[in-house]
């Protein structure tokens, strides 16, 4: 179960975009309860996330309370309620990854990006999540960056990945100042 979500303010023109993608999804799927998950998945695919407005519109079309759509969206891990970063980092926390250092990789990303898992950097460049298991256990620990699977990720590799996206790595002294932020 997830904690309550605070929706971010919409960008300019985003409202129109949301309306369009909801309409498109409703054209493809009949507006029935059984199609609710497929509709939500399609809207999320188009927008990258599920804004509150989209859920309200879908609820209206399916003639059900918006809170039920919200309940469903928060029940399933697949749905995200905040906008993704330009680059999405997903750290696998399956058993095999966890045991060989997935936690260490996650902490490295948190330290370098200055955010916690589930958050997006203020410049919306990177978002960081943990995922259950991507099924590549033999390559553990695994990190998925923008659909690209990276295997055997060490702290040095974390820096390498971020550098390849042009992220400036804070010098050690700066990073040291943030010490102790790593989640347990």
């Amino acid at each position: 179960m997830r904690k309550g979500v605070v929706f971010l303010p919409l960008l300019q023109g985003e409202e129109e975009l949301i309306r369009k993608s909801v309409d498109k999804a409703l054209r493809k799927h009949e507006a029935t309860r059984e199609n609710l998950i497929p509709i939500l998945l399609q809207v999320q695919e188009a927008l990258g996330y599920l804004p509150g407005l989209a859920m309200e519109q879908i609820a209206a079309a399916l003639k059900m309370p918006a809170v039920e759509v919200y309940g469903l969206a928060t029940f399933y891990n697949q749905f995200r309620l905040h906008p993704p970063g330009k680059h999405q980092v997903k750290v696998c926390m399956g058993t095999a990854c966890y045991m060989v250092g997935g936690r260490i990789a996650l902490e490295c990303f948190e330290r370098r990006l200055g955010i916690k898992e589930g958050e997006t950097t203020p410049d919306r460049e990177f978002s960081l999540e943990r995922v259950a298991c991507v099924g590549c256990c033999t390559m553990a620990p695994v990190v998925v960056v923008d659909e690209h699977v990276e295997g055997k990720v060490t702290p040095t590799r974390v820096d390498g990945i971020l550098l390849s996206f042009g992220k400036a790595i804070a010098s050690g002294a700066e990073a040291a100042g943030k010490k102790g932020e790593g989640a347990s």
Binding site: G94, T95, A96, A132, C133, G135, C137
Partner: peptide
């Protein structure tokens, strides 16, 4: 719906 962490047979 293979959800066990550490399992990928069905996939």
């Amino acid at each position: 719906d293979e959800g066990d962490p550490g399992a990928f047979m069905d996939r």
